Simulated assay, not measured.
Amino acid sequence: MPVTSVTTDLEALTMTLVADFPVAVERLWGAFADPRKLERFWGPPGYPATFDTYDLRPGGIAHYWMTSPEGERFHGRWEFAEVEEPHRIVVLDSFADAQGEVDPSMGTGRMTFTFESTAQGSRYTAVSANETLEDLEKVLAMGQAEGMTQAIGQLDTVLADLREYALGTGTQVEVLDDQHVRITRAFEAPLHLIWRAHTEPDLMKRWLLGPDGWKMTVCEVDPTPGGAYRYAWEPVDGTPGHGFGFDGETLVFEPERRIVTTERMTGADFPATTNDLSFDEEDGVTLLTLLVTYADAAQRDAILATGMTDGMETSYQRLERELVTTG
């Protein structure tokens, strides 16, 4: 975790976060100067940001929203007060409405981002200052400290060279807490191809099979939020009684960026999981990230113990053979 400290000063009405990264300060600055990179980490897991306006200059405006796994949007607005490349950005930070206008019912804070070189690479320091103690207590109660820590905790992936960071490592699993697991897999292929492989039934039937010896007999997809989907598999040899399937609901569908669905085994009575699947491309490498939310640690451990991720890796290797190498 790159975040080294998060401190609150009730007298100064500030919260300060410090994080260190093993990259040059210019690369760290670039992650904040490029809204497409900023979208990959600004927002805790499950609440990615989308910037539709980003004018990085004194007096410029940025409007963004974070989309929850249920599809709800939370809007924010920055007004850039100072921009000193590559060392300092100061923004007036406000909650906003869907049109990007400041929400007057919430206070406007002042965030100062500083970027400095260190012996090991670079350091990011964010100081969030509030106008009143009430405003500070309000944002802290909303989880600002936890949310920023989780968001900046994702920045190391954005700063890394994907070819070095993930390509060739197979399916990686990281247990985040009792309810959340993050799974990543990199492909040396363009994003549009990996996206198609996850959304077009004819392509899905060619690779989404798990271990050898299975066939996908049902692949019904409705990408509309609120729409249902259903998958089913049977043994190739036709062994009776061994088929299984999954079904659920589409919650979020953002083309070539994000798919959020619920998932439950068809006919089972345990709670559905929420699967938050996102796609990012850099230099011809596409990184797939799946954030799975479970009901509790017991469900998490039981599902991981089934060998789920081994089956995923077998499928991903098949995807590479069937689709990536053949185009």
Rank of each mutant, 00 (worst) to 15 (best):
E131Y: 11
G243H: 02
K138Q: 13
W214R: 02
T217A: 14
H242S: 12
N130M: 05
Y231L: 13
Q144R: 06
H242K: 09
D237G: 07
L140R: 09
V221D: 10
C219I: 10
A129D: 05
D178I: 06
E188T: 05
W233T: 05
F246V: 08
H192L: 07
G168C: 08
S128W: 01
L203P: 00
G147L: 04
L203N: 01
F244Y: 15
E220S: 15
D135G: 04
V175T: 13
G238N: 14
W233V: 04
I152M: 11
G227Y: 06
E220R: 14
A145F: 04
P223I: 10
D247V: 00
W233Q: 04
L140S: 05
L208R: 01
P190I: 01
D237P: 03
G245N: 09
G243V: 06
L191D: 05
T157Y: 13
G213S: 14
L203Q: 02
F244L: 14
A141G: 12
R163I: 12
L162Q: 07
E131N: 11
D222R: 08
V218Y: 06
C219F: 07
Q179H: 13
A141R: 07
Y124W: 13
H198Y: 10
L208I: 00
F244P: 06
M204E: 03
Y229Q: 04
P223W: 10
M216E: 11
A232G: 04
E146W: 07
Y165V: 12
P201I: 01
A166G: 08
L155Y: 01
H242G: 08
H242W: 10
M216K: 02
Q144Y: 09
K215M: 14
R185F: 09
G168Y: 08
T125N: 10
Q172E: 13
M142F: 11
E220Y: 10
D161A: 14
T149A: 11
R230K: 13
V236K: 15
I194S: 01
L155F: 03
L176N: 02
A129T: 03
A151E: 01
E220V: 13
A129E: 06
R185D: 05
L208F: 04
D202C: 00
R123T: 15
H198V: 03
R182F: 01
W214Q: 05
P223S: 14
L140K: 04
V127I: 15
G227P: 03
V181T: 07
Y165I: 12
E200L: 11
G147T: 05
D178F: 10
V175N: 07
W195T: 10
E164N: 11
L209S: 00
E134N: 11
E234I: 09
K215C: 11
Q154L: 10
D247T: 08
Y229T: 02
F246K: 00
E174L: 08
T171G: 04
Y124G: 02
E137G: 10
A141L: 08
K138Y: 14
K215I: 15
P201T: 03
L136W: 03
R185K: 15
V139K: 00
T239N: 10
G243A: 11
K205Y: 06
E200N: 11
H192I: 07
H180Q: 09
D247I: 01
T224N: 14
T171S: 09
G143L: 03
A228T: 12
C219N: 11
A232S: 11
A151L: 01
W195L: 08
G170H: 05
D222T: 09
L162C: 07
L155S: 02
E174V: 06
